[in-house]
């Protein structure tokens, strides 16, 4: 975290749903499947409200919570 630049930090907090329209429903599906493949963590489509998983930081947080 300490080596992160200001820009990187900001991009980690960008709202992927609203600000840059990156995370549509299909992207959300791909994200959940990739998390499953990479970390063995299964998150159901309605498990996390969209506003709790819409920035890179929040996604990391949700995965870490389930790996702990």
């Amino acid at each position: 975290m300490t080596t992160m630049t200001h820009e990187e930090l900001e991009s980690r907090m960008l709202d992927l749903l609203e600000d840059i329209c990156l995370l549509d429903s299909m992207a959300a599906v791909e994200l959940l499947v990739s998390i499953e493949d990479e970390f063995g963590v299964s998150i159901a489509p309605t498990e996390v409200p969209r506003n709790e998983m819409n920035t890179v930081n929040l996604i990391i947080e949700q995965v870490e919570k389930r790996m702990a």
Partner: peptide, 29 residues
């Protein structure tokens, strides 16, 4: 429908690689 049909159907298709190649994502959705 998005939560209980679309996303689950798309998830199954992504898991089983129903579509392959560059257009896989577009075709699946």
């Amino acid at each position: 429908l998005r939560d209980f049909v679309f996303m689950r159907l798309a998830r199954t298709m992504v898991r089983h690689h129903v579509f392959k190649g560059k257009k896989a994502r577009l075709r699946t959705s």
